[in-house]
Design a protein around this nucleic acid. Structure first.
Length: 121
DNA sequence: GGTTTGACCCTAA
DNA sequence: ATTAGGGCCAAAC
C-alpha cells in the first residue's frame, strides 16, 4: 500500500493550529524522513500530498485545510469540500484568509509554517 | 500496461 | 515579471 500517505498525514498533523504549510514543504519533510536518498532540487513528490489529501476520509483528524500551495492559495478540488470551507476552517483558527479574483489566499509570511515548531520569523 | 491527468514545485529562458 | 518545460508518484482511463 501507499505508506507515503501515512508519512504525509503524519506531517500534516504536525502543523500547528493557526499555521499553514505548503504542499512542497509537506512533501519535503515527509520525504526527507524516508526518501532522503533522492533529495533532488526539483519539485519532488508534491503532487502526492494532493492525492493523499484527496483520498482522505472526511472523518479523519488530519487538518488538511492547513495545507496550501506555494503561493498561499487554496487550490482545492474536491467533490464535497470547497475552498470556501477550507477558508472558513482556517479563519476559525485565527488565520486571515484573503480573497481575490482567483480565490482565497493566505499570507505565508505571517502564517507560513517553518517545518519545525518554531515561528517562521 | 501505456497514456493521461492531477488539492504541485523548480529551473531556465 | 511571465511562459515553457521537466520532474515526481499515484490513480483513472
Amino acid at each position: 500500500m501507499a505508506d507515503r500517505y501515512e508519512r504525509i498525514y503524519a506531517q500534516v498533523r504536525h502543523i500547528p493550529r493557526g499555521r499553514v504549510a505548503t504542499y512542497g514543504q509537506i512533501a519535503a519533510l515527509a520525504g526527507s524522513r524516508l526518501l532522503a536518498m533522492s533529495s533532488r532540487p526539483n519539485g519532488r513528490g508534491a503532487r502526492l500530498v494532493g492525492w493523499a489529501l484527496h483520498a482522505l476520509p472526511s472523518a479523519s483528524d488530519v487538518p488538511w485545510h492547513r495545507v496550501v500551495n506555494r503561493e498561499g492559495r487554496l487550490t482545492i478540488q474536491h467533490e464535497h469540500v470547497s475552498a470556501q470551507t477550507q477558508a472558513i476552517l482556517l479563519r476559525n483558527e485565527g488565520v486571515t484568509v484573503d480573497e481575490d479574483g482567483d480565490g482565497f489566499v493566505v499570507d505565508l509570511g505571517k502564517y507560513g509554517w517553518n517545518g519545525t515548531m518554531k515561528n517562521s520569523k
